[in-house]
Write a protein that binds this DNA or RNA. Structure first.
Lengths: 153, 153
DNA sequence: ATGGGTGCAAATGATTTGCAGTAAT
DNA sequence: ATTACTGCAAATCATTTGCACCCAT
């Protein structure tokens, strides 16, 4: 698979996240810490499976239940966001409140990259929908599938 | 739940579909017939569960396996299309080759309506992505969530 | 010491598969 | 008569839940 670069937009460190959680009175366990580090270190949205496999290297007794419960916790506390690539399992990535992005899913190598879709593009579309259908759009899902740079050659 | 109107774009009759399939040498069984009629009669994308429940009224011994296998068959033969509303199960609707549409999913009454999103809106976006990311988009998923006309009041 | 976190086993729910029987041609 | 379809039971796979135990505070 490909290399993971740090996301260029945000520079969240796992320490920042740890402080945030600690300040709210939550405990920082080995697994919670490990999970935060994974999210900070990769650009690839992670599935429960992937997280389990990675964490199991350091903590051989982790259980998938813990992973699922931790993900639920991190989502509830707005640390990570759930995304759906329609391949049968949910994936998670660091929540970035400031920019709204979508994904490019390569059907060749399965890598996922982010695209920022200018807000006004969809806003215009949504306000048109609002008028024509009297439907108040509150959220949307938009994901692109195709072939990445590498897989095209 | 709401009323189902016939889709205004297409006037596919289940007889047309039956002929198409028969012409290809497929058998027209009671269940296949029933399923086609359901798809022609409703605007709401159907889940396997819903189809099973509806068909079971007339054919009390239908099994869910048959429903799933029939759906697979209809998808493979381009009679229906699979859509994903991210609520845990797949849904199916008549395949309409001529117009590319998306859905408005009401979070109040759960009804799903179609929106035609002008081709050029997304095309423009996709060709921009193609240039900026050297990523060749071949398909996309775009669904809207919110509140419909009725649920707004 | 206390309750937030954890592991294990078993449950859930959508979808799939194997196999033997049945009905559409 | 063929063999495409069907039903039933059991398997799969991601995710959830119950419960007793344990570790971060």
């Amino acid at each position: 698979m490909g290399t993971a670069h740090n996301n260029s937009h945000k520079h969240t460190s796992s320490q920042d996240l740890v402080e945030t959680l600690r300040a709210q009175g939550f405990r920082i366990t080995k697994i919670r810490q490990a999970m935060l580090e994974i999210f900070v270190a990769t650009t690839q949205p992670q599935s429960a499976q992937q997280l389990l496999a990675t964490i199991a290297q350091e903590h051989p007794t982790v259980n998938k239940t813990t992973i699922y419960r931790e993900l639920e916790f991190l989502v509830k506390n707005s640390i990570v966001t759930e995304i759906d690539i329609l391949d049968g399992m949910k994936r998670y990535e660091l929540h970035e409140s400031d920019h709204h992005h979508h994904h490019l899913v390569c059907e060749g190598c399965k890598e996922i990259q982010c695209v920022e879709v200018p807000h006004h593009d969809l806003d215009a579309l949504e306000s048109r929908i609002n008028k024509s259908h009297k439907f108040k759009v509150t959220s949307h899902v938009l994901e692109f599938f195709g072939l990445c740079k590498n897989c095209l050659s």
